[in-house]
Design a protein around this nucleic acid. Structure first.
Lengths: 211, 211
DNA sequence: GTCTATATGGGGATAGAC
DNA sequence: GTCTATCCCCATATAGAC
């Protein structure tokens, strides 16, 4: 037991440092993006040297991949925490709200949507792809259930709704509202949810236009 | 007249080459983004050498700036072409449809939204900033008019609608629908307009949920 | 104005000492 | 495993011939 504990203690500190590295990586990815992030940036922020960083992660691509995998795992965990009694629409709303709050906290790069280069790079990371497929399956399934329950427009194809869901989690409008309007996070999230579900248009447009 | 013509001919070929450079730049920016675009890429695509490229544009930043300015001018021109009889909502819809079609043609980078670094760079380009301010003023004014006319949700702040308008022009969902679903451009644009104005939610949600 | 050839600097990755 | 010092490629930008 004591030996095991000693080993696990070593592993634990190792894991802690790795988490610190991934935390820093995620923050830097969120702010500068993959192309502009340098290994020096990461090493400096963590407080270690570049070669030490390379002992933990073989390459910049691997490092970014692991950070993205952790984000996807967090999203999957959020979905798992939701009670089954919740309607599919409310689950989607909950996941969107969670993602936006993470993002407003400076921690959701959502790289693949942004750059073809990064998307291609991540596609070569099989562990990442497996996570994406898993999450995508769950989200698409929720969309289909919500449509069947009459909670989402049946006139829109599944993929239009699903992709627009992903798009809302990395919507640049969020940055603008935070940066220029100094709007508080909860209000921003609330507006983004409204815009996604109900749109910006007024349903009473026709009647109002008659006056 | 003949002398003037000779001069203008020289200027004309110069202008033509510059347009070719800016066309190539815009395409490359749209596909790879600013950070990954190299001056070699541009020179190669235009069919000139790198030093020649630098004769036309002093730096990579200047080059990208001019390409963005041309895009903004095109957007302003589109707005100018719209008949005054068109409702503000229809003008916004028209501008969104135009932007999405340009984008589906591989020609709208919409850099500023993507990267903080690029946004900061463009902010130092005063000619670019002037265009942005001009366009922003017009869009925001249309949003306000549309709200007053009851065409847009008065419950949403002006900026939420305005920024979400910009966001829709560079929505990654467009890329996904084109890439994975092979959806044709017109259908994609139509869906994006629907999603922006009406959202993905079903208005009859509550009644449907009762069954 | 256009080219070939090159200067310069940054950043991914590693050698080798401790 | 951690560091200092270094390799080496690549991309911006320019010098200098024609």
């Amino acid at each position: 037991m004591s030996i095991l504990k000693a080993l696990s203690f070593k592993d634990q500190t190792f894991k802690l440092r790795e988490d610190a590295i991934l935390d820093a990586t995620t923050r830097i990815l969120a702010s500068k993006g993959f192309d502009l992030m340098t290994m020096d940036d990461v090493a400096l922020e963590v407080g270690i040297s570049k070669p030490s960083l390379y002992k933990h992660f073989k390459s910049k691509e691997k490092l970014a991949g692991e950070a993205m995998i952790r984000l996807l795992d967090a999203a999957l965990e959020q979905l798992g925490l939701m009670p089954d009694t919740l309607s599919p629409r409310m689950k989607l709303q909950g996941l969107l709200e969670w993602a936006l709050h993470v993002r407003l906290n400076g921690c959701l790069p959502f790289l693949p949507a942004t750059s073809a280069h990064v998307r291609e790079m991540l596609t070569r990371n099989l562990r990442y792809v497996a996570r994406v497929v898993k999450l995508h399956h769950k989200v698409k399934s929720l969309v289909q259930q919500a449509k069947k329950a009459g909670e989402l427009k049946s006139s829109l194809p599944d993929d239009v709704i699903t992709y627009s869901f992903y798009a809302r989690t990395c919507d640049p409008a969020v940055d603008y509202l935070k940066l220029y309007d100094k709007m508080d996070p909860d209000t921003i999230v609330q507006h983004m949810v409204t815009v996604w579900f109900d749109g910006v248009g007024n349903e009473q447009k026709e009647t109002a236009a008659k006056t």
